[in-house]
């Protein structure tokens, strides 16, 4: 294992921001793994720290196949994480909306450019991002439909689901999209948490990455076979919204099987305690995403459901 500083941003009022990379093995640029880019992505940071630990042990045992180099970058934006901000601390811009970056540009464009330069040219790029709506997911691999992506490869993570997203204009400045445009097979791994640590899904995420690296011939490692993934297109998910606003009570978890007519959640009058409405499942299926904050606005998407097809 070699720790190196990939990029430094000089600061005046606090310590410099140093972005560290951990290199394992040597030779061809095989895989690059990027953890937390936003300041609230604590689970993502934790997963990468566990990956660094696991890869260090595997390397010591000679488990990295010759002529393969793996680079892990656990944290890009601890300047924000340390002061509990999600976006860049001084101007609130999002580094994950600045790719491929620009060396002579604004601060976060420079950080993105510095990072992107260090992580280009890898065969596989794996990122642990977060979603903009507060809530929990079924662990899944997400890919963008850029014309360069390959669903078959995504299956090798052995995660239960692979989700294909049709990119919108705003996606064209994310790391995942730009990796693909620059010929890296890019995957985004979502686990069940962001700003808190979920041990179980973190362990599964580490296992998924090790499984993927093994199946790609980069690691020698005995891994459990994992799931045979179902491939879903994002637009096929059924969105369930709440018609009321108030205090939200959830009765089901991501991954749970649900039935048509089942009550999934209630919204309670925040002043008087009475139930204002119940959210009833219109279909049989599996909860893919569930809103997690205790309050809801009218029209909030509180569940995304994978509809079960009856044959």
């Amino acid at each position: 294992m070699k720790k190196e500083c990939l990029y430094t941003l000089k600061k005046q009022y606090r310590d410099d921001l140093n972005i560290y990379g951990y290199r394992f093995g040597r030779g061809e640029k095989a895989a690059c793994i990027v953890g937390s880019i936003r300041g609230n992505e604590v689970q993502q940071l934790y997963i990468c720290s566990q990956l660094v630990k696991a890869l260090k042990r595997l390397e010591e045992k000679g488990a990295i196949v010759e002529e393969n180099e793996i680079l892990v970058i656990p944290s890009v934006n601890h300047s924000s994480m340390n002061i509990r901000k999600r976006f860049w601390a001084t101007d609130n811009t999002d580094i994950n909306r600045m790719f491929p970056g620009y060396h002579a540009g604004e601060t976060t464009q420079r950080i993105a450019a510095g990072l992107f330069e260090a992580i280009q040219g890898y065969h596989y790029g794996i990122q642990f991002p977060s979603f903009y709506l507060p809530g929990d997911f079924v662990p899944h691999v997400r890919m963008m439909e850029t014309g360069f992506q390959s669903h078959d490869l995504a299956n090798h993570f052995g995660m239960p689901y692979v989700v294909i997203r049709q990119p919108k204009p705003i996606d064209t400045t994310t790391l995942n999209y730009n990796w693909q445009i620059w010929n890296t097979n890019a995957f985004s791994l979502y686990t069940s948490a962001t700003d808190r640590i979920d041990e179980d899904s973190a362990r599964k995420a580490v296992a998924s990455v090790l499984r993927f690296l093994t199946r790609m011939g980069i690691l020698r490692y005995t891994s459990h076979s994992g799931y045979l993934a179902s491939v879903i297109r994002e637009e096929e998910l059924t969105n369930l919204k709440t018609g009321q606003s108030g205090i939200y009570q959830r009765y089901v978890k991501p991954g749970e099987e649900i039935h048509q007519g089942q009550i999934l959640a209630s919204v309670i009058d925040p002043l008087e305690g009475e139930v204002l409405g119940r959210i009833v499942s219109p279909v049989d299926g599996i909860i893919f995403f569930a809103h997690s904050a205790p309050l809801v606005m009218e029209g909030t998407i509180i569940f995304k459901i994978i509809e079960q097809l009856h044959e």
Binding site: Q244, S245, G246, I247, P270, L271, L295, V296, M297, E298, G299
Partner: peptide
């Protein structure tokens, strides 16, 4: 207009 959680609309 969209209802906010407690007694208010956006």
């Amino acid at each position: 207009s969209v209802g906010l959680a407690v007694d208010e609309c956006l």
